[in-house]
Amino acid sequence: MHWLLLVLLSIFALPDTAGAMDAIGKVRRERPADLDASTTVATRYGTLQASYETDFPELPLNSVHTWRLSLQDKNGLPVVGADIDLTADMPEHLHGMTTTPLIQESDTPGLYLVRGMNFHMPGYWEVTLDISGAGSRHLLRFNLIVGESQRAPEGRKADES
């Protein structure tokens, strides 16, 4: 609902780094009750759409992993050569990840690999993409909930120990 406002806010208020203590000037925000945790997001007029996948059924907690990030323009065509700046933050804790991921364009047009993602706390995360080189500058945001599903670890039954 406040998505556009969030984006506008983001331009002014986004942190430039993500880490253990980068809290100066930030405002603590609680998790919204109706969080949209879609893995595909788009700009308001659909000029740019982004989606991500991982190798895991759920986003892993405390595990360094890779995102496969796809970018499409409003005609559904892959966006190549985008300059992507990614930050991951926990609005409830005023800090982000303890890694600085590397974004590499893959051989598949529109597919980017984000290596070094690591969510070290459970709960509400925001991953923001600041993308230029796709016609103009775009800001896109994924909302994530990490580590709160009841799914058992992969390859293991929950009652095993």
Binding site: T17, A18, G19, A20, M21, D22, V64, M97, T98, T99, T100, P101, L102, R115, G116, N118
Partner: peptide, 17 residues
């Protein structure tokens, strides 16, 4: 070693942790 390769090494943030 991805956890080392992509480690955030911003000393300022981690002093005293």
């Amino acid at each position: 070693g991805d956890h080392i390769r992509f480690l955030d090494r911003d000393t300022r943030k981690y002093v005293g942790t």
